[in-house]
Amino acid sequence: MAMIEITDLHKSFGANDVLKGVSFAVERGEVVVVLGPSGSGKSTLLRCINLLEDWQAGDIRIDGESVGYFDGGRRRAWPEAKAAKVREQVGLVFQSFNLFPHRTALENVMMGPLHVRRMAKPEARKLAGDLLEKVGLADKADQYPATLSGGQQQRVAIARALAMQPKVMLFDEVTSALDPELVGEVLIVMRRLAEEGMTMIIVTHEIHFARDVSDRIIFMDAGAIVEQGPPAQVLASPASERLKLFLRRYQGDYLAV
């Protein structure tokens, strides 16, 4: 049974169709990278999986369980409380980090365990401390986000999401807002997570990283999956014109049209 199963997902914002029948599955421990031009619906896809967005048609199953809607004959969205329970199992790291500015790095990581799992404070602190060490920021535990660099903030954000011990981790262009020299430190953390067997769906523009770390690459354009397959194959010999174009742009041919 796949960890994540998406069947014929349709999502629109008003008159704008953003996802037009997306279907794919992600196995336990698999690392999937989603590539695509902006506006292709990649972020929206992730936000649907962790129920931050609702959708018009289609099914999402997490670890076998269909989430988001009651379908006893009629479609009805889940109440917040039920959706919150699902989000405990799906970690999402954002492009803009979204750390809580009024809490230290350690306190940020403790937020989930303390206020959702209702862990005792000393226990939560130890868990958070270990996670910060894992992402290489043990010495920044008592710093506020404003004093940390972008790369450091993003690593704290990853630790924060991991603190909930999710079954799946979603990454939404987490290095796109970073200065180039800070990107590496975040990718290292993500690579280690992949090696440890975490199920991951990564939306990114880092093609080299995708080739090295992913088990499968999915290419999306205009709300639909155009092509997918093992990285070596998809990147070296793209089948579709659109993917060929996309890759040329990313290999530096900025005049490719």
Binding site: A84, E88, F94, S96, F100, V116
Partner: peptide
């Protein structure tokens, strides 16, 4: 964005 982050952690 912060509210989205808090929701993503499962906070109610």
């Amino acid at each position: 964005g912060q509210i989205a982050a808090a929701k993503s952690l499962g906070m109610r």
